[in-house]
Amino acid sequence: MIRGLFIGRFQPPHWGHVWAIKAILSEVDELIVVIGSAQFNYIEKDPFTVGERIWMLREGLKEGEVDLGRVIIVPIPNIENNAAWLSYIKSYLPPFQVAYTGNPFVAMLLREGGVEVRQQPMYDRDRYVSTRIREMMIKGDQSWRGLVPASVARIIDEVKGVERLRVIMSGEAEPHKW
Protein backbone atom coordinates (compact mmCIF):
# COMPACT_ATOMS: atom_id res chain seq x y z
CA MET A 1 0.00 0.00 0.00
CA ILE A 2 1.24 3.46 -0.89
CA ARG A 3 0.25 6.33 1.39
CA GLY A 4 0.83 9.89 0.21
CA LEU A 5 1.09 13.21 1.99
CA PHE A 6 -0.41 16.53 0.88
CA ILE A 7 0.06 19.68 2.98
CA GLY A 8 -1.88 22.93 2.80
CA ARG A 9 -3.40 25.69 4.91
CA PHE A 10 -6.76 25.54 3.11
CA GLN A 11 -7.72 29.16 3.90
CA PRO A 12 -10.26 28.38 2.37
CA PRO A 13 -10.30 25.05 0.51
CA HIS A 14 -11.08 25.62 -3.19
CA TRP A 15 -11.71 23.54 -6.31
CA GLY A 16 -7.98 23.44 -7.08
CA HIS A 17 -7.41 21.61 -3.78
CA VAL A 18 -10.24 19.16 -4.49
CA TRP A 19 -8.98 18.41 -8.00
CA ALA A 20 -5.37 18.00 -6.77
CA ILE A 21 -6.47 15.55 -4.08
CA LYS A 22 -8.51 13.56 -6.63
CA ALA A 23 -5.49 13.40 -8.95
CA ILE A 24 -3.14 12.35 -6.15
CA LEU A 25 -5.58 9.60 -5.13
CA SER A 26 -5.21 8.16 -8.64
CA GLU A 27 -1.53 7.54 -7.76
CA VAL A 28 -1.75 6.42 -4.12
CA ASP A 29 -3.95 4.08 -2.10
CA GLU A 30 -4.46 6.49 0.78
CA LEU A 31 -3.73 10.19 1.29
CA ILE A 32 -2.88 12.09 4.45
CA VAL A 33 -4.02 15.69 4.07
CA VAL A 34 -2.26 17.92 6.59
CA ILE A 35 -3.96 21.15 7.53
CA GLY A 36 -0.94 23.24 8.41
CA SER A 37 -0.73 26.35 10.56
CA ALA A 38 -3.40 24.75 12.73
CA GLN A 39 -2.90 27.17 15.58
CA PHE A 40 -3.54 30.31 13.51
CA ASN A 41 -6.96 31.88 13.02
CA TYR A 42 -8.69 35.26 12.92
CA ILE A 43 -5.72 36.87 11.12
CA GLU A 44 -5.42 38.13 7.54
CA LYS A 45 -3.50 35.14 6.18
CA ASP A 46 -5.35 32.58 8.31
CA PRO A 47 -8.89 33.82 9.00
CA PHE A 48 -10.52 30.43 9.55
CA THR A 49 -10.05 28.12 12.53
CA VAL A 50 -8.66 24.64 12.06
CA GLY A 51 -12.05 23.19 12.94
CA GLU A 52 -13.70 25.29 10.25
CA ARG A 53 -11.04 24.24 7.72
CA ILE A 54 -11.51 20.54 8.52
CA TRP A 55 -15.26 20.98 8.11
CA MET A 56 -14.91 22.91 4.83
CA LEU A 57 -12.37 20.47 3.41
CA ARG A 58 -14.45 17.37 4.26
CA GLU A 59 -17.60 18.88 2.78
CA GLY A 60 -15.75 20.10 -0.31
CA LEU A 61 -14.18 16.69 -0.87
CA LYS A 62 -17.58 15.00 -0.48
CA GLU A 63 -19.04 17.44 -2.99
CA GLY A 64 -16.15 16.61 -5.33
CA GLU A 65 -17.00 12.89 -4.94
CA VAL A 66 -13.74 12.01 -3.21
CA ASP A 67 -13.75 8.72 -1.31
CA LEU A 68 -13.21 9.96 2.25
CA GLY A 69 -12.40 6.40 3.29
CA ARG A 70 -9.06 6.92 1.54
CA VAL A 71 -8.33 10.34 3.11
CA ILE A 72 -6.91 11.07 6.56
CA ILE A 73 -7.15 14.74 7.58
CA VAL A 74 -4.67 15.79 10.27
CA PRO A 75 -4.29 19.31 11.67
CA ILE A 76 -0.72 20.23 12.63
CA PRO A 77 0.48 23.45 14.30
CA ASN A 78 3.59 25.15 12.90
CA ILE A 79 6.96 25.11 14.58
CA GLU A 80 9.72 27.67 14.05
CA ASN A 81 12.56 25.15 13.70
CA ASN A 82 12.70 24.23 10.00
CA ALA A 83 15.50 21.69 10.52
CA ALA A 84 13.27 19.76 12.95
CA TRP A 85 10.05 20.27 10.96
CA LEU A 86 9.93 16.89 9.17
CA SER A 87 10.51 14.89 12.36
CA TYR A 88 7.88 17.03 14.05
CA ILE A 89 5.18 16.41 11.42
CA LYS A 90 6.04 12.71 11.22
CA SER A 91 5.22 12.43 14.92
CA TYR A 92 1.62 13.42 14.07
CA LEU A 93 1.20 11.12 11.07
CA PRO A 94 0.94 7.50 10.02
CA PRO A 95 3.85 6.41 7.82
CA PHE A 96 3.83 7.75 4.25
CA GLN A 97 5.94 6.94 1.21
CA VAL A 98 5.58 9.99 -1.01
CA ALA A 99 4.73 13.66 -0.54
CA TYR A 100 3.08 16.08 -2.94
CA THR A 101 3.78 19.79 -2.84
CA GLY A 102 4.09 22.80 -5.08
CA ASN A 103 6.14 24.67 -2.49
CA PRO A 104 9.89 24.53 -3.30
CA PHE A 105 10.92 25.14 0.33
CA VAL A 106 8.69 22.35 1.67
CA ALA A 107 9.96 20.07 -1.12
CA MET A 108 13.56 20.81 -0.09
CA LEU A 109 12.86 19.98 3.58
CA LEU A 110 11.11 16.74 2.61
CA ARG A 111 13.87 15.65 0.21
CA GLU A 112 16.57 16.42 2.77
CA GLY A 113 14.69 14.07 5.08
CA GLY A 114 14.74 11.29 2.49
CA VAL A 115 11.12 11.61 1.36
CA GLU A 116 10.19 11.14 -2.28
CA VAL A 117 8.57 14.37 -3.46
CA ARG A 118 6.27 14.79 -6.43
CA GLN A 119 4.87 18.02 -7.84
CA GLN A 120 1.24 18.32 -6.88
CA PRO A 121 -1.16 18.81 -9.75
CA MET A 122 -1.93 22.51 -10.23
CA TYR A 123 -5.22 23.59 -11.76
CA ASP A 124 -5.46 27.10 -13.20
CA ARG A 125 -3.12 28.37 -10.48
CA ASP A 126 -3.81 32.02 -11.31
CA ARG A 127 -7.48 31.47 -10.56
CA TYR A 128 -7.52 28.92 -7.74
CA VAL A 129 -5.47 30.63 -5.03
CA SER A 130 -6.80 31.04 -1.50
CA THR A 131 -5.15 34.47 -1.13
CA ARG A 132 -6.99 35.71 -4.21
CA ILE A 133 -10.27 34.21 -2.98
CA ARG A 134 -9.90 36.01 0.37
CA GLU A 135 -9.16 39.29 -1.47
CA MET A 136 -12.31 38.81 -3.56
CA MET A 137 -14.36 38.23 -0.40
CA ILE A 138 -13.06 41.44 1.18
CA LYS A 139 -13.84 43.47 -1.96
CA GLY A 140 -17.37 42.08 -2.19
CA ASP A 141 -16.65 40.26 -5.47
CA GLN A 142 -19.19 37.42 -5.29
CA SER A 143 -17.44 35.45 -8.04
CA TRP A 144 -15.27 33.89 -5.28
CA ARG A 145 -18.21 31.52 -4.76
CA GLY A 146 -17.53 29.83 -8.10
CA LEU A 147 -13.95 29.06 -7.07
CA VAL A 148 -14.91 26.98 -4.03
CA PRO A 149 -17.32 24.07 -3.69
CA ALA A 150 -20.85 25.29 -2.85
CA SER A 151 -20.58 23.49 0.50
CA VAL A 152 -17.49 25.56 1.37
CA ALA A 153 -19.29 28.79 0.45
CA ARG A 154 -22.24 27.76 2.68
CA ILE A 155 -19.90 27.13 5.62
CA ILE A 156 -18.14 30.47 5.08
CA ASP A 157 -21.57 32.11 5.11
CA GLU A 158 -22.58 30.19 8.25
CA VAL A 159 -19.48 31.26 10.20
CA LYS A 160 -19.75 34.80 8.79
CA GLY A 161 -16.32 34.42 7.23
CA VAL A 162 -16.60 37.38 4.86
CA GLU A 163 -17.61 39.69 7.70
CA ARG A 164 -14.74 38.27 9.79
CA LEU A 165 -12.24 39.02 7.04
CA ARG A 166 -13.52 42.57 6.67
CA VAL A 167 -13.17 43.22 10.41
CA ILE A 168 -9.68 41.70 10.43
CA MET A 169 -8.67 43.87 7.46
CA SER A 170 -10.25 47.02 8.90
CA GLY A 171 -7.41 47.34 11.39
CA GLU A 172 -9.95 47.54 14.19
CA ALA A 173 -9.60 43.90 15.18
CA GLU A 174 -7.88 43.67 18.53
CA PRO A 175 -7.72 40.58 20.73
CA HIS A 176 -9.71 40.77 23.90
CA LYS A 177 -7.54 41.88 26.78
CA TRP A 178 -8.07 39.86 29.93
Rank of each mutant, 00 (worst) to 15 (best):
F6D: 07
W19L: 15
S143K: 15
E172V: 04
G36W: 01
I89R: 00
D157E: 15
N78L: 13
D124S: 13
M169Y: 12
K62I: 15
F105M: 08
A38K: 04
P75Q: 08
I2Y: 14
F48V: 10
M136D: 08
S170L: 04
A38C: 06
F48C: 05
I89M: 03
P77M: 13
E158I: 08
V50Y: 04
E52I: 02
M169V: 12
V50S: 11
F96H: 05
P104K: 09
R9C: 10
E27I: 03
A83F: 10
I32R: 00
R58I: 09
K90A: 02
L147I: 07
L109F: 01
I133K: 02
L165R: 03
G69Y: 00
R134D: 01
M1I: 13
L61T: 01
F6W: 15
P175N: 06
R58V: 11
V129G: 04
V129D: 15
I156N: 11
R154E: 15
G171T: 06
E158A: 15
G113T: 01
N81G: 01
I138R: 13
H14N: 13
V148C: 10
P77G: 11
A173R: 13
E172Y: 11
V115I: 12
I7V: 15
E172I: 02
G64C: 10
K177D: 06
R154A: 14
I79D: 05
I168K: 06
Y42P: 02
I35S: 03
F96A: 02
I133V: 11
V106R: 00
P13C: 14
D46H: 14
L147V: 08
S26Q: 14
M56E: 07
D157H: 08
W15Y: 15
E158L: 15
I156A: 12
R58Q: 13
D29H: 07
R125P: 14
V18Y: 06
A173I: 03
A107H: 02
Y88V: 04
T131R: 07
N41P: 00
K177R: 13
E63W: 11
M122C: 01
K90W: 02
F96Q: 01
S37H: 05
I156W: 12
L68H: 03
A20Y: 07
K62G: 05
I155E: 09
A150S: 14
A150L: 10
D67A: 10
R70T: 00
L57P: 08
P175D: 05
M108V: 06
L57Q: 01
S37A: 14
Q39R: 11
A20W: 04
G102P: 00
L86F: 12
L5T: 02
P94Q: 04
R53H: 04
G146L: 11
R145F: 05
P12W: 12
E172S: 08
S170P: 11
V71K: 02
I32C: 00
I2R: 15
D126I: 12
T131L: 09
A38R: 02
G36I: 04
V162T: 14
Q39P: 00
G64N: 11
P149C: 10
K139P: 10
I156S: 09
Q11F: 12
G161S: 11
Y88H: 04
K62Y: 09
G113E: 02
R145T: 10
N103W: 03
